[in-house]
Amino acid sequence: MKQALYIVDVQPSFNPPSRLVEEIATLAIRMPSIASVERHDESITPFERQLGWTPGKNDESLVAADRVFIKYGYAPPREAVDYLLSLQLDRVLVCGIQADTCVLAAGFAFFDAGLSPTLLPWLTVGSSLDRTGALGARLWKHHFGAMLSGPDEI
């Protein structure tokens, strides 16, 4: 099966658990890997005005990936979607930070593009609303269906 790993916002602003960073990094060297990093531009996404928060200006991905795409807002940039499409994948494995927001937004973008997004819930944490990621995993299962239960299924 031809697949790639999409790593959502594993960056200092979101204070990811070290275990999560290490396990994603171990997986990222096994297949094509793509990471997103959230940056802030108030003219694109009004985080400051509406939420009183912005990601770090100089954040970089904490996981070395083959390609890194900067994004503004919740969804992956169109360039990341186009890059994944160019790989002609059977599925995109998705993991990272904020299962109930940014990870879910990636799922919608990839689903709409026909990329067969598949969640890796053991490599995903939620937002401050649900740090376990359980809410995001339930929403993912409902909307996209494809979710693996452990590393032996990759």
Rank of each mutant, 00 (worst) to 15 (best):
K71Q: 04
S116C: 14
V94N: 10
M147T: 11
L148M: 12
S149A: 11
R138T: 11
L120D: 05
V125K: 01
L89C: 09
T54K: 14
Q88M: 10
R91C: 15
K141G: 08
L84P: 05
S116D: 14
R131G: 03
G150I: 09
L119T: 06
A137E: 12
E79D: 13
V63M: 01
S149H: 12
V81C: 08
C95K: 03
Y83K: 07
A113N: 09
V94F: 03
L123Q: 04
Q88V: 09
F110I: 08
V125P: 06
L87D: 05
R91W: 10
A99I: 03
A64C: 06
D66A: 06
S149P: 05
V94A: 11
M147E: 14
L120G: 08
A65I: 01
L123D: 04
V125Q: 12
A109D: 10
P117K: 02
V81G: 04
K141M: 12
V92F: 06
C102N: 00
H143G: 10
S128C: 07
A113M: 05
N58S: 11
P76W: 04
P55N: 02
R131H: 13
L135F: 05
Q98I: 09
Y72L: 11
D82P: 06
G96I: 04
D90E: 15
F144C: 11
P77E: 07
L148A: 13
L129H: 13
S116G: 06
E79M: 09
P77H: 05
Y83I: 10
W122D: 13
G150H: 10
A64Y: 02
V81W: 02
G107Y: 01
F144P: 06
A80N: 07
T132V: 09
E60S: 12
I97W: 01
G145F: 07
Y72N: 08
F144M: 06
W122A: 12
R78G: 04
P55C: 01
G56R: 02
M147A: 12
H143L: 14
W140H: 06
L135A: 11
S128R: 13
S149R: 13
T132W: 04
L84K: 04
G145W: 08
V92L: 12
F110R: 11
P121M: 01
D112K: 11
L104V: 08
D82N: 14
L123V: 01
G136H: 00
H143R: 12
R91S: 13
D130T: 00
L89F: 10
C95N: 08
S61V: 08
D112Q: 13
I70W: 05
G145C: 10
G145T: 07
L148T: 08
G114H: 02
P77L: 04
G107V: 02
D66R: 05
T118V: 14
Y74N: 13
C102A: 13
Y83L: 12
G96M: 02
I97G: 00
K57I: 07
L129P: 02
K57D: 11
V81E: 06
C95A: 15
L104N: 08
D90Q: 09
P117V: 03
G73S: 03
Q88L: 10
L89R: 10
A146L: 14
G56Y: 04
K141Y: 09
L89I: 04
A65F: 07
L93N: 05
L115C: 03
S116M: 13
E60D: 10
P76N: 10
L120I: 11
G56I: 03
S86G: 13
Y83N: 08
